[in-house]
């Protein structure tokens, strides 16, 4: 019954959405602000990659919100998972499984490569496709690889917290410095430099570095948190404990 009605209404919805989009012309969108940014973005910000000017310049506060969401998700995830890790940490088998030499050694081989690649992409975010998010994900992959190769190995959470805290804070502080200089919040400063060179586009590379580190640390933390769950077969003791907790808290 549910499935039938879901399909009926979903096909209705699909039909209606297609009716709406039928009147749109592909490639013919008005692009009012897009066109304006394409025209004056280079002059105003000095970044060769106009997407970066939008991400960090025109819509800088979106990006702030975005890294805050990642941070929130990571905090919430660790909050959700913390009860488990606190309880099972004593009983958890601290057996470091080694999934083979090849995997382990290639992981350690790739680690510096991935770090370098990630940093490269982050630092060239204002020049080439890429930037803080993409680079940050590669950084996270670099840290996650050893975890895959050698499951059960611990992750330095406090170090990650330090990085993500300071990276996020420096993003905001750069924005606030702009305020103190008499500009608007998150307004790029430091001058434009020569377009196309590594040191150009004002504070954008700095912001992207902060974003990159933040995203890298955030994702590493998230992945590590999920990886540390181990087997998600519920242990009987854990179940009893949690159901008891349900009763005591809920009533």
């Amino acid at each position: 019954m549910r499935n039938v009605s879901a399909l009926v209404f979903a096909s209705g919805l699909a039909f209606l959405l297609l009716v709406i989009t039928w009147q749109f012309v592909v490639g013919g969108a008005p692009m009012l602000i897009g066109e304006a940014i394409l025209q004056q973005g280079a002059d105003k910000i000095g970044s060769a990659n106009l997407v970066t000017s939008v991400v960090l310049g025109y819509r800088g506060i979106d990006t702030l919100g975005e890294i805050a969401i990642l941070f929130t998700a990571s905090t919430a995830t660790s909050l959700v998972l913390s009860s488990l890790s606190a309880k099972t940490s004593s009983s958890k088998k601290v057996v470091i499984r080694d999934d083979g030499t090849i995997l382990a050694s290639s992981a350690s081989l790739f680690f510096p490569l991935l770090i370098t690649l990630g940093m490269y992409i982050i630092l060239h975010g204002h020049l080439t496709p890429g930037g803080g998010f993409q680079g940050g994900v590669i950084l996270a992959a670099a840290f996650f690889l050893p975890l895959l190769a050698v499951p059960g190995r611990g992750v330095n959470h406090s170090g990650l917290a330090l990085v993500e805290g300071f990276a996020g804070a420096s993003f905001i502080i750069i924005g606030i410095i702009a305020l103190f200089q008499g500009n608007a919040f998150l307004q790029p400063f430091f001058g434009h430099g020569e377009m196309g060179s590594l040191v150009s586009a004002g504070t954008l590379p700095l912001l992207y570095t902060a974003v990159g580190l933040k995203v890298g640390a955030e994702l590493s933390g998230l992945l590590a948190n999920l990886a540390e769950i181990g087997e998600i077969v519920p242990e009987s003791t854990d179940l009893q404990a949690s159901s008891m907790q349900t009763e005591s808290n809920g009533s």
């Binding site: 692009m31 897009g34 973005g41 939008v54 991400v55 975005e66 990642l70 998230l222």
Partner: peptide, 23 residues
């Protein structure tokens, strides 16, 4: 050139999606 604004938006929304999925 194509419009840079939706690209930036999509970048943002992908990252948001990742966070929500992790949670």
């Amino acid at each position: 050139m194509v419009d840079p604004v939706p690209q930036a938006m999509v970048l943002t929304s992908i990252v948001i999606g990742v966070g929500i999925q992790a949670l």
